[in-house]
Amino acid sequence: MKNTNGKLIGNIEGDSVYCLDLKGLVIGITIKMEDGNFNRIAPIVIRCPKDLGVLSSSEIEALKAFRNSDITNFLDNYVGEINVDFHLDKAEIATAKV
């Protein structure tokens, strides 16, 4: 929240669920991690508002350290990394005139 000037409000729920409120939009995002591993949440949480155009370039840069995560084994050897491999499309919102 601090790095996004309050544009994002996140909440960790039970059963590996993360809820994200995007202030200024009338949507929220819920992320469920099937394997229960929360260390994969941050890159997903950053990608969603970035794709929806909610974050400025300076806010995205401030979150750079959280975008990708290294995976290490029990000996703390690097064995891979977590990268987000999806993009959200911003839906056009139609407004009806009454």
Rank of each mutant, 00 (worst) to 15 (best):
E34L: 15
D35E: 15
D35W: 00
D35R: 08
G36P: 15
N37G: 04
N37K: 06
F38T: 02
R40C: 04
A42W: 15
P43T: 05
P43G: 06
P43W: 03
I44N: 05
I46W: 08
R47G: 01
R47T: 11
C48F: 07
K50P: 00
K50I: 15
D51V: 00
D51I: 02
L52Q: 07
L52V: 04
G53M: 09
V54S: 04
L55D: 09
L55H: 08
L55A: 03
S56W: 00
I60C: 01
I60S: 00
I60Y: 10
A62R: 10
A62K: 10
L63H: 05
L63I: 00
K64W: 06
K64M: 08
K64Q: 11
A65N: 11
A65Y: 07
F66K: 11
F66N: 10
R67C: 07
R67T: 09
N68G: 04
S69H: 14
I71H: 00
T72R: 10
T72W: 00
N73I: 07
L75H: 09
D76S: 10
D76F: 05
D76Q: 10
N77S: 09
V79W: 12
V79L: 11
V79K: 13
V79N: 08
G80L: 11
G80V: 09
E81V: 08
I82W: 02
N83E: 12
N83H: 05
N83G: 06
V84Q: 11
D85E: 13
D85G: 02
F86W: 06
F86Y: 12
H87D: 13
H87E: 13
L88Q: 06
D89I: 13
D89V: 13
K90D: 04
K90F: 02
I93L: 05
A94Y: 03
A94T: 04
T95G: 01
T95K: 00
K97I: 13
